[in-house]
Amino acid sequence: MPKKRSRVLSMVVIVILLIILALNIIQVPYFVSKPGTADPLRPMVDVEHGYKESGTLRLVTIYQGKASAWQYLLAKWDFNPYTQVTKAKYITYPDENEKEMTVRELDYMKSAQDTAAYVAYKAAGKKPKIQHRGVLILNVHSQMPAGKVLKAGDVIQVFNGKPVTRISDMQGMLKGLKAGDVVHLTIKRGKTVKEVKTRLAPFPKEWLPNDVKHKVGLGILQSDNMALKVQPPVTFDTQGIGGPSAGLMMALEIYEQLLPSDLTKGYDICGTGTIDFDGRVGPIGGIKQKVVAADKAGAEIFFAPASDHEAKDAMAAAKDIGSKMKIVPVKTFDDALKYLQTLKPKQ
């Protein structure tokens, strides 16, 4: 009898382990997100011969990943309000695979770097220049003919014999063309330049805005491929972090290094928000989770976008976790700059 019970117990253990293994392998259409890290920007952003600050400027991240069935269950059982489960359709684009999502997120970061540098150099009295170098493909719908010849990461440089420097160029060239028309493209893939051709076709329905019933084209998600020209040069090493939300904080870090004035004045400063070429700060996702990460890192000041109630959400999260961190709403880069310029040095 004891031997029989032992065999049964062993079988039960094996079955449980197999179930746990299966739950870790099976992917579900959800993403799990939770507070990430608040990392100093100085090691990631370097202006040649730049000035050093007495305090710290940080970018804030959230952890976000596609969930296995096991991770989904753990997140659902986690009663921490700062661990969230979101349907994949709200995170990814239609027909977007993981590689294409990575290309898109890294392009968002690259665009944020260029824009942040442009804003900071301009504010510091320098003369930044942006060069447009074609159309970067972030995603190609697999049902479109172009899906057989184009892929994420390609840069379109020539369309039907005409140079392409930005998205608006190609949009103009597509006018008057119809489904079935063959177009000839020159693309750059890595270090290789290739000539390809493909047919135009109607967009799949899931790619059409609600107010558009029919559209013909290549079926790509695209971005302007840009290069920034500044003096002194600036380099970035964001360690594979993706997304556009570090724009504001990178602009502040670059400005700090360009001029001898010490903006940080000894404080530990976090923040989040996109930035455009006019210095406007835009909303981002997961601001409550970013407040938690910033507080854990010991930040004393947190810049939050004033739009879309994000600053209010940040204040609510800080109050909820008992943080003494000062939440500062900003609409523009100048708002953040003026706040730091009038800040009294830390005692």
Rank of each mutant, 00 (worst) to 15 (best):
T102E: 11
L74P: 02
Y118F: 15
D78Q: 11
K126W: 01
K129I: 03
I137C: 04
R58T: 01
P81T: 10
E105Q: 15
E105W: 12
Q71W: 13
K129V: 09
Y72M: 14
K99T: 09
M101R: 15
A88Y: 03
T86K: 10
F79C: 01
K122V: 00
K129P: 00
A67K: 00
A120M: 10
Y82W: 10
K99Y: 12
Q71E: 15
R133P: 00
Y93W: 14
T102V: 14
I137E: 01
A67G: 09
A69Y: 06
D114I: 12
A88W: 07
D95Y: 08
Q131K: 14
A120W: 05
D78R: 12
N97V: 08
P128T: 03
K99M: 09
T92N: 12
K126G: 09
M101S: 11
K66A: 07
E105P: 00
Y63P: 00
V60L: 08
S68L: 04
T61I: 06
I91T: 04
N97E: 12
A88E: 15
T61R: 06
M109G: 03
D95K: 07
A117S: 14
D114W: 07
K122Q: 13
P128V: 07
G125R: 12
Y90V: 01
K66T: 01
L136K: 06
Q64R: 14
I137W: 02
W70L: 15
V103F: 03
Q84W: 09
N80A: 11
A117Q: 00
N80W: 13
Y90R: 11
T92E: 08
D114G: 04
Q71D: 15
Y93K: 12
I130K: 06
T83A: 09
D107R: 09
N97W: 15
K129M: 06
